[in-house]
Design a protein around this nucleic acid. Structure first.
Length: 196
DNA sequence: CATAGGATCGCCT
DNA sequence: GGCGATCCTATGT
């Protein structure tokens, strides 16, 4: 089990865009209330620290909410969007470099029944947890978990098990307010091969 | 203190 | 394709 953990040092380089891409296929495993669930990451977006107009830390902004982004890579940042959706990010980079990767899609591997209960929806391939709020919900991740460190408590990042996939690159969703930065190729999708 | 708006989803047509 | 939900966060007075 321990040898399956992704080393946290992987998350502490300054290359948040590369990390976002390399997180595709990695597995997130959560254990809340003795309920184990695991899924692999299918979609990510990079948010590049203080220079990225789409980032909550743009311009070096530090608030109660964004403070966790300034921690070292490997912590998690969860915030509430539109009053209802818990959006789950992995903080990356060295301390005081507020990069983050938004987890936008997952595909379940373990504990599918638990995820169905959380989602209040039956599993079906594709739309079950392909969206940042539905992915968090399936894994049971909520805003109260913001700030905790990966691989030490209830949330773990494990090495990939799938490797036969292609990567699609595109622009980020819902960041029109970020002007020209909305055009950056910071969104990554995992596309399994031989699965049309 | 008041207010505007959001890294979205799901249901409706 | 369109819109309402729903409430926290950030900002301004």
């Amino acid at each position: 089990m321990e040898d399956e953990l992704m080393p946290i040092s992987f998350l502490q380089s300054d290359d948040v865009v590369g990390i976002a891409r390399d997180l595709l296929g990695c597995r997130i495993q959560t254990t809340f209330d003795h309920q184990l669930t695991e899924a692999f990451i299918t979609e990510t977006e990079a948010y590049k620290g203080i220079s990225d107009m789409a980032s909550h830390a743009f311009g070096g902004r530090r608030t109660m909410r964004t403070e966790v982004m300034y921690k070292s890579g490997g912590h998690i940042y969860v915030y509430l969007c539109y009053g209802i959706h818990h959006l789950f990010n992995i903080v990356t980079g060295p301390e005081n470099t507020p990069h983050a990767v938004l987890i936008r899609g997952i595909e379940p591997l373990l504990g599918i029944e638990i995820m169905e209960m959380r989602r209040k929806k039956h599993y079906s391939k594709g739309g079950f947890s392909s969206g940042p709020a539905t992915a968090s919900q399936a894994l049971g991740i909520k805003t109260k978990h913001t700030g905790i460190a990966l691989n030490q408590h209830s949330i773990k990042l494990l090495k990939p098990k799938v490797n036969d996939f292609a990567i699609e690159v595109s622009t980020r969703i819902g960041v029109e307010y970020a002007k020209e930065d909305a055009l950056l190729p910071y969104r990554f999708n995992l596309v399994l091969k031989n699965h049309p």
